[in-house]
């Protein structure tokens, strides 16, 4: 297989298969949980604004509870750094926007390249800080297993392979055009596809499970008038 064929494979069948696994795996996981069912709560509710409570919890828990803000650890704040950094890189970098445009027809203004590059550096450092903390902190080390470390790996890998493509001047080229050196782009795409394939099955599924978890707790505590 030539480098160009590998790129075509990564842009074509591999991409569609990985997206298919992402969609099917995510739906399977959600459906598998939903089928477990639940019982209606018969206690007289103190508040019936359960949807509002669920939504409030979903958004409010994006920030630490005010009572814990002063004591929150570096590791927790670091989580915000790499989540924000990944969002900037995925949604703010022109080649990624073009990629989405090619797939879905959606596009938005890109951030200047230097800004994105700064976030790449910051995110890279932040992800390594997360790993170091996980390996060194007794609590996180005790909690962590293969899933945690492999999930970290599949997040860092696209970042790393993406950096290998940065020497190609993209801004002047169109999305459909072939890169001057197809191999780094193909490897980058394949690493992203590995992430997509892994996402529904491991710890990264928190990307969608977080909404259900927060909403369930938010609604339950709102019912008791105990949402804080």
């Amino acid at each position: 297989m030539t480098e160009l064929e590998l790129l075509e494979f990564a842009r074509g069948p591999a991409l569609w298969v990985s997206l298919g696994v992402l969609a099917a795996g995510s739906l399977w996981r959600i459906a598998g949980i939903l089928r477990l069912g639940g019982k209606p709560d018969l206690a007289e509710p103190r508040s019936t604004r359960l949807i509002a409570g669920a939504l409030r919890a979903t958004f409010a828990r994006m920030l630490p509870h005010p009572a814990f803000r002063r004591t929150i650890t570096l590791a927790a704040w670091n989580g915000y750094v790499y989540h924000a950094g990944l969002a900037v890189i995925v949604f703010g970098y022109l080649p990624h926007i073009d990629f989405v445009k090619r797939l879905l027809g959606l596009a938005w203004p890109a951030l200047p390249e230097p800004v994105v590059y700064a976030f790449v550096g910051l995110t890279f450092v932040s992800l390594f800080v997360a790993l170091i903390v996980r390996l060194n902190d007794p609590v996180r080390r005790l909690l962590s297993g293969f899933d945690d470390y492999f999930s970290w790996f599949v997040v860092v890998l696209p970042l790393f392979t993406g950096m290998m493509t940065l020497d190609q001047s993209y801004a002047t080229r169109s999305a459909a055009a072939l890169p001057l050196d197809p191999l780094p782009v193909a490897v980058h795409l394949l690493s992203v596809e590995l992430l997509l394939v892994w996402l529904p099955f491991g710890r990264l599924a928190h990307a969608f499970l977080v909404f259900a978890s927060r909403a369930v707790t938010g609604a339950a505590l709102t019912r008791k008038g105990a949402a804080q």
């Binding site: 996981r29 949980i33 939903l34 089928r35 477990l36 069912g37 639940g38 019982k39 814990f68 004591t71 929150i72 650890t73 590791a75 927790a76 989580g79 996980r134 902190d137 609590v139 996180r140 909690l143 962590s144 945690d148 710890r203 599924a205 928190h206 499970l209 977080v210 259900a212 978890s213 369930v216 707790t217 339950a220």
Partner: peptide
């Protein structure tokens, strides 16, 4: 005991360890 609501929560943990600090 791991019904729907409990399962969503059991599955959502990212092992951040913040609960230890509380």
């Amino acid at each position: 005991q791991a019904g729907r609501d409990a399962a969503f929560q059991l599955e959502a943990c990212v092992h951040c360890g913040q609960c230890a600090e509380a």
